[in-house]
Design a protein around this nucleic acid. Structure first.
Ligand SMILES: [Zn+2]
Ligand SMILES: [Zn+2]
Length: 439
DNA sequence: ATCTCCGGTCTG
DNA sequence: CAGACCGGAGAT
């Protein structure tokens, strides 16, 4: 409750940085609404057919005002958010299994409707700093005009792979790949459920190297675990003023952007919350005049809602912009990437279809008729660290003997029974217990 | 492309 | 339910 008054903070808390990236990513596309510590009901009130993106940042279930992602909420989100293209539930365990938020959302789409690109986390004890880093990378790629899928895959690719299993668990989980589009109109809804009352610069803070340290604050930053996880150089936590790829042909005239391409694109937007009026500067840089970051620290009056709208001026004004419309602005009205209900089209990866009529998978004839789509459980890789995981194939057990490398027919396709991961077994047990408990 | 092996489904 | 089977995800 004792947050510094708006206008006082020099240090941008991480959560704001993350939000800043989100906003930046949509500069030419959606308008952004940011909600803070909202309940499911409050969020639903803000979701409508113009909502193309839903981002949740914070806890998932339990503690600290985390969202529950109750069935009702999910149903509402899917029902009201008819135009959703991208959903990112940036919360621990949000994409762990079929009961997790992401899967629930994806599974709530009935067949003719295609779920949005949906991403979350398998890992349950995710470090905030890591989640933010990933988020920032994703959105900065989106800002550089990648579509959602590309951005996600690109970020995942950037994570080192050498460390095998370990890194695997730190990757965001793409639960669904939706349409490869990026509308230029719509509203992105962002809900951050966080303890915003922490001192600025607090949180566990990613160690943002040099920057920001201006007026310090304790900000102890757990610098210890520096070992970067990212294959390409440093963490990017602080915002690069523009994208590495840089493209952004100079011709891209923006409203009133200053010509100096260096450091000078501040003041793109002045309007924000009409009550607190603190928004100024770009989303990622302090305002030249007041030295604030664009996100005000609090707004009691609007229940935490900030809106940034009317940014693209397609509606009127002399149109010059469609000359070389950016690649992202196509919306394919033929809608032809969608998958058929079992006809020619290929169903999207990650989802399997299941006939409701007699199940006879062996039979060649495809059963026409209604199908239910359902996401497959996310593959949980073995931990690679427990004792069995570290063993070699014994060469004697049923599974080993089945393996081609031991001269077997390869029918079982299973791991050596002496190498079954203990951690996974544990998880499985828990899952089972859960299920029993549930009913 | 090939290889490993997860996790869903079927069978007994 | 356990075990066999196997599509196919994910790593390489
Ligand atoms: Zn074995
Ligand atoms: Zn293991």
């Amino acid at each position: 409750m004792n947050s510094p008054p708006p206008g006082k903070e020099k240090n941008l808390p991480n959560i704001y940085l993350e939000l800043a990236h989100i906003v930046e990513s949509q500069r030419h596309k959606a308008n952004i609404r940011i909600m803070r510590n909202a309940s499911e009901t409050e969020i639903l009130e803000k979701i409508d057919e113009k909502t193309i993106m839903f981002i949740y940042i914070g806890h998932y279930r339990g503690g600290g005002g985390g969202l529950e992602f109750s069935d009702g909420f999910v149903k509402g989100l899917v029902g009201k958010g008819k135009s959703l293209e991208f959903v990112f539930i940036n919360a621990c365990g949000s994409a762990m299994d079929n009961k997790s938020a992401c899967q629930k959302i994806v599974n709530s789409y009935e067949t003719p409707n295609k779920p949005p690109t949906t991403v979350g986390w398998h890992k349950q004890d995710l470090k905030d700093a890591h989640a933010k880093e990933v988020s920032k990378r994703i959105f900065s790629k989106i800002a550089s005009r990648m579509n959602y899928e590309e951005a996600l895959k690109e970020v995942i690719k950037e994570m080192k792979t050498e460390d095998g299993q370990k890194t695997e668990r730190l990757k965001p989980v793409i639960v669904e790949i939706g349409k490869p589009i990026h509308s230029c109109e719509g509203v992105g809804c962002v809900c951050a459920n966080y303890d915003f009352s922490q001192p600025v610069g607090g949180e566990e803070e990613i160690s943002t190297s040099a920057c920001s340290s201006a007026n310090a604050t304790p900000s102890v930053t757990s610098a210890s675990k520096r070992e970067s996880l990212w294959s390409n150089d440093t963490q990017m936590s602080e915002i690069e003023s523009d994208e590495s790829s840089g493209d952004e042909s100079s011709g891209d005239s923006d409203g009133e952007k200053s010509t100096n391409n260096n450091n000078e694109q501040e003041i793109l937007c002045k309007k924000l919350c009409e009550h607190c009026q603190v928004w100024c500067g770009t989303a990622t840089k302090t305002c030249k005049e007041c030295k604030n970051y664009p996100f005000p620290s609090l707004c009691q009056d609007t229940n935490g809602w900030y809106e940034w709208e009317e940014r693209h001026q397609d509606t009127d004004s002399t149109q010059e912009e469609q000359t070389q419309g950016p690649a992202t602005r196509k919306r394919d009205q033929t809608d032809k990437w969608g998958y058929e209900v079992l006809g020619g089209g290929k169903p999207p990866k990650k989802s399997m279809t299941k006939t409701t009529t007699s199940c006879n998978p062996k039979s060649t004839q495809k059963v026409k008729s209604k199908v239910v789509t359902k996401t497959r459980k996310i593959r949980e890789p073995s931990c690679g660290q427990c004792e069995p995981c570290l063993k070699e194939d014994c060469g004697k057990c049923k599974c080993c003997l089945d393996m081609p490398k031991f001269g077997g027919p390869g029918k079982r396709k299973e791991r050596c029974i002496h190498r079954k991961c203990l951690e996974k077994i544990e998880h499985k047990k828990e899952e089972k217990k859960d299920k029993v408990e549930k009913c």
